[in-house]
Amino acid sequence: MNKYKKLALGIVLDALGYASFIIPGIGEFSDIVWAPLSSWFMTKLYKGKPGKVAAVINFIEEALPGIDVIPTFTLMWFYTHVFFTKKTN
């Protein structure tokens, strides 16, 4: 997948995670479903150990009330494609 398509998808997935704030009370219940689902998406977008670590962090972030405002997918994209890119000579 193109890295910019992956960024766009990550932004959409982060926005879906924010959607739980739209409906007070019901929103936190939706996190019970969204937390494992978003973690699964994370492992599909980012392979290997970094993807697994990000999935665990994503699960915790989405499952705990009040901290699911962190854009985990977007941060993982920056980690992967900006901060730790492989240098080619």
Score class of each variant (00 low, 15 high):
N2K: 14
K3L: 11
K6T: 14
A8Y: 10
A8E: 08
A8V: 13
L9P: 07
L9Q: 09
G10T: 08
I11E: 08
I11L: 15
V12H: 06
L13E: 10
D14H: 11
A15Y: 11
L16S: 06
G17I: 15
G17W: 15
A19H: 15
A19F: 15
A19N: 14
F21H: 09
F21Y: 15
I22V: 15
I23K: 11
G25Q: 03
G27I: 10
G27D: 07
F29A: 02
S30F: 15
S30D: 06
S30G: 06
S30K: 11
D31M: 14
D31P: 00
I32D: 01
V33H: 02
V33S: 02
W34M: 05
A35C: 07
P36T: 01
P36F: 01
P36Q: 06
P36G: 03
S38R: 01
S38W: 05
F41D: 01
F41E: 04
M42T: 11
M42Q: 07
T43W: 00
T43V: 13
K44F: 08
K44D: 06
Y46H: 13
K47V: 07
G48H: 09
G48E: 12
P50K: 13
P50G: 00
G51H: 07
G51P: 06
G51D: 04
A55Q: 02
A55V: 07
V56A: 04
I57T: 05
N58Y: 04
I60P: 02
I60R: 00
I60S: 02
E62A: 05
L64E: 02
I67P: 00
I67F: 03
D68L: 03
D68W: 08
V69N: 01
V69D: 00
P71I: 05
P71G: 05
F73N: 01
L75W: 07
M76S: 05
W77D: 04
F78E: 01
Y79I: 09
Y79T: 10
T80V: 07
T80N: 08
V82H: 03
V82K: 08
K87S: 04
T88H: 11
T88M: 03
T88C: 00
T88P: 00
T88E: 13
N89C: 02
